[in-house]
Amino acid sequence: MNPISSLVFVLLLTIFPTQILCQTPLIEQACGYTIYKFLCLDTLIPDPDSKNATTLKEIAIISFIYTENKAYEIYTQFRDLEHSAVNEGWRQALSDCTHYYRTVGDILSSTYSYLKYSNYTGVKAEMSEATVNRQKCDQVFQGKPFKSPLSKSTTKLSQMQNNAESIINHL
Rank of each mutant, 00 (worst) to 15 (best):
F38R: 05
A164N: 04
T18E: 14
T121G: 11
I59R: 06
S166N: 11
K51A: 15
P48L: 02
D47Q: 05
P48H: 01
K70H: 09
S50L: 01
N133A: 12
L11C: 04
T154A: 11
L26V: 14
K144N: 15
K152N: 13
S118H: 06
L41H: 09
A85D: 04
M160W: 12
H99P: 01
H83Y: 07
V10D: 10
L157E: 10
R79A: 14
E88R: 09
N2L: 05
E58P: 02
Y36C: 09
I45T: 07
Y120Q: 02
Q142R: 11
F146Q: 07
Y75R: 06
W90F: 11
M1N: 14
E126A: 12
L21S: 15
V132G: 10
A30C: 05
T111K: 07
F9M: 14
T154I: 10
P25L: 15
C31K: 01
I59K: 05
K37C: 08
L21M: 13
E88Y: 10
I107S: 00
R79T: 06
Q135M: 13
K124S: 15
C40A: 04
L108D: 00
A71N: 08
R91S: 07
T24K: 11
L41N: 07
F38D: 15
E165F: 00
L13E: 15
A30R: 02
P17Y: 12
F141Q: 01
D42P: 02
I74V: 09
I168C: 10
T14D: 05
Y114W: 12
D47H: 02
L41K: 05
I59H: 12
S63T: 02
L44D: 08
P17K: 13
L13Q: 12
L56F: 09
F9K: 14
I20V: 11
R134W: 02
S128K: 13
A85K: 03
N87D: 15
R79C: 03
V104Y: 05
Q159V: 03
L39A: 05
